Computed example of a mutant assay.
Amino acid sequence: MQVAVMGAGAVGCYFGGLLALAGHDVTLIGRPNHVAAIEANGLRLETKTGTQMIPLKAASDPSAITPPDLVLFCVKSADTEAAGRALQPRLKPDSVILSLQNGVDNASRLQAAIGHPVIASVVYVGTEMAGPGHVRHHGRGELLIGASAQSDVIAATLTSAKIPTTVAPDIDQALWSKLILNCAYNALSAVADLPYGALLAIDGTEQVVRNVIEECIAVARACGVSIPDDVLTKTLALPGAMPSQKSSTAQDLARGKPSEIDFLNGTVARLGAAHGVPAPTNLALTVMVKLVESRRGSGAS
C-alpha cells in the first residue's frame, strides 16, 4: 500500500515505521529537521528490544507525495483543518483516512473541512521523539478504529504489520474513554514534568485524578455517550502499566510547543458548561497548563 503519515511526530513515526518494515511504501510528512534526518539515515526506531534504522520516504510538504491508499492523520488537534486542506489535493476518491489524534471530535472536524470520509481511531501507545528522525517506544501500540466499509480490511492490514487493530462497535465510547485517560494524567504530568509512575506517589494526586474522571463521566453522559463501568479502575491502573512515560502534553511543554489542552481537559470544561455539568477540576488543570505555557513562552493553545 501507498501510506502517507500526515504529522510525523512520535505516534506517526512509530506506526509508519512498522508499516514500512511490513513492506508498505510509507512517506512521513513532518517538520524539516525530522525530514532531513530521515532522508539522510532513515527512521531510527528504538524499542525495549533494540534499535533499528528503517529506510522510508519523508517530505515536509504533502504536495510532493504519491496519492495514498491509506493516510494516518496524526497532526495536533489545533492543526486539523489546515493540515487536512493541505493534504486534500493528493487524495484519491478511495483513499482511507484514519484520524490518530487526541480528543473526541477531530475526525468529524477533518471530514467537514475536506469533504472526504474519515475514520475515527483511538491510539494506545507510549512513544516520544528522542531527536530528529528518532522515535522511542515505551509500551503498548494498539488501535481501535471506527466501523466503515473499509475498516475490516484496514484492521487486518495494520494487524499484519504488528499494529494490533480492532474495529470498535461504539467508537464514540472508545474516544471518550481515551479522553478520560488523557484528562486524568496529561495536565498533571505536564505541570509537574513527571512520568505517570511518580504522580500518584504525591499525596492528594489520586483524589485529583478521581475528581477529573468523575467530571468526565458526568459530561460524557450529558452528551449522550455511554461510558463503561470499569473506566475508573482502568484509568487508575495506567501509572502502573507505563510508569516511565510522560504525557504528550508534558513533551509539548518541554519542547516549547503549544499543547492540546483545549482539546483535552478544556473540551470537558467547555462541554460541561454547555450542558450545565460542573467540571471545576478539568477547568483548573486547563488553566494550569496554559499558565505554564505562558511562562515558558510556548503560546497558549
Results as ranks from 00 to 15, higher is better:
1 M>R: 08
15 F>T: 08
17 G>E: 09
17 G>V: 08
19 L>T: 09
24 H>A: 11
30 G>A: 10
38 I>N: 03
41 N>M: 00
54 I>L: 12
54 I>E: 07
61 D>V: 15
71 V>C: 06
72 L>C: 11
72 L>M: 13
80 T>P: 13
82 A>K: 15
82 A>D: 15
89 P>Q: 12
92 K>N: 15
97 I>A: 07
99 S>H: 08
99 S>G: 10
99 S>Q: 11
104 V>Q: 04
108 S>R: 14
108 S>E: 15
109 R>P: 08
111 Q>I: 09
111 Q>D: 13
112 A>R: 10
113 A>W: 08
117 P>S: 13
119 I>T: 09
138 H>L: 15
139 G>E: 05
140 R>W: 08
141 G>S: 09
145 I>D: 02
147 A>C: 10
149 A>P: 00
153 V>D: 14
154 I>M: 06
156 A>E: 14
158 L>R: 01
160 S>V: 07
162 K>R: 12
166 T>V: 12
166 T>A: 11
174 A>I: 02
174 A>Q: 00
182 N>I: 03
186 N>E: 06
189 S>P: 00
192 A>D: 11
196 Y>K: 07
199 L>Y: 09
204 G>Y: 11
208 V>E: 10
211 N>F: 05
212 V>G: 02
219 V>H: 02
221 R>N: 13
223 C>T: 07
224 G>K: 00
224 G>R: 06
226 S>P: 03
233 T>S: 12
234 K>S: 06
237 A>D: 06
238 L>F: 10
246 K>H: 09
247 S>Y: 01
248 S>W: 00
248 S>F: 00
250 A>C: 11
254 A>W: 00
259 S>P: 04
265 N>R: 07
266 G>T: 05
267 T>W: 05
273 A>V: 09
274 A>N: 07
277 V>N: 05
278 P>N: 08
282 N>W: 02
282 N>Y: 01
289 V>F: 02
291 L>K: 06
295 R>M: 08
297 G>A: 04
